[in-house]
Design a protein around this nucleic acid. Structure first.
Length: 268
DNA sequence: GGGTACCCTCTCGG
DNA sequence: ACCGAGAGGGTAC
């Protein structure tokens, strides 16, 4: 199945916003969207996809409705640095990840390097997720609770308790994963931070990658470093994140991705 | 509001 | 080669 989307798979799937994509020896990308194990092959105007049974789900995942050139134009017009970075990294798109999967994976993404995040996520899938053949689905809260006795094998460290409590609160309905969908940004991130293991940074990541709040501007150590080097912005989390949102506006999340990616190639 | 400990794994310098 | 120290998408206390 062919998808005509303005996207480059390497920066989009390899930049660390989602953690289940693997680059194959033949340069294709394998990952899981819903119940499909997909293999994606880059083409000039998009990608070919093997294993897809739900075209709409894939288009949604890649935020096909986002007009990338228009977005880049908007965040570049008042900022030469973003203009240069986005020009140097064409086809980098934000993804729309399932809310639960996004929340659960970013709770694991504290005080570890990106490589190990992917390892923990894959371990959780391998232990609890539905078998889809080559890979397993991201487990539901119920699946995690049912198999909870072997959670130790996933080697989540001090994140284990937070992860299990999260599964418990979602499964019991104590926290309805869909109820914050219509909340404004500020209320959404505040609500998410009621959960153990969710601080301001994780809340922003979930708001951006899970709930599609493109105005969110997550600040990790790398972004903090870039904001200091490029704009002289320092301070606590709230300060730096607020500057990012104010400076880049409704598409601050895209600006954040370009800044983050620039760190990985040591550019500019 | 600022300072620390935190499970565990991988990496690096001796 | 083998080992110990350090760092790693932050958060809770």
């Amino acid at each position: 199945m062919h998808f005509k989307i303005d996207v480059r798979l390497d920066p989009t799937l390899g930049c660390g916003q989602a953690h289940r994509w693997r680059k194959q020896p033949d340069d294709s990308w394998q990952g899981v969207i819903g119940k499909d194990v997909l293999t994606l092959y880059q083409t000039p105007d998009g990608f070919d996809c093997e294993g897809c049974t739900d075209m709409a789900a894939v288009r949604s995942y890649f935020r096909a409705e986002d007009n990338l050139p228009a977005i880049i134009r908007e965040i570049s017009v008042a900022d030469p640095q973003i203009a240069a970075l986005s020009a140097a990294c064409p086809g980098l798109r934000l993804l729309r990840q399932p809310e639960w999967e996004c929340l659960a994976t970013y709770v694991l993404a504290t005080n570890v390097n990106v490589k190990r995040i992917a390892k923990m996520v894959e371990s959780v899938c391998d232990h609890f997720g539905t078998d889809l053949g080559a890979r397993r689905a991201f487990p539901t809260p119920r699946q995690i609770l049912d198999g909870g006795s072997c959670i130790g094998e996933c080697r989540l460290g001090f994140r284990e308790g937070r992860f299990m409590e999260l599964a418990q609160r979602i499964d019991s309905g104590d926290f309805n994963i869909r109820s914050p969908e219509r909340l404004p940004y500020e209320e959404l991130t505040a609500r998410l931070q009621d959960l153990k293991g969710v601080g301001p940074k994780v809340a922003d990541c979930v708001a951006l990658f899970g709930y599609g709040r493109l105005e969110a501007f997550p600040v990790d150590v790398r972004i903090a470093d870039e904001m200091k080097k490029r704009y002289g912005v320092t301070g606590n989390y709230q300060k730096i994140a607020a500057v990012g949102r104010e400076r880049f506006g409704r598409y601050a999340g895209y600006a954040q991705e370009f800044l983050y990616h620039s760190g990985s190639i040591g550019a500019q």
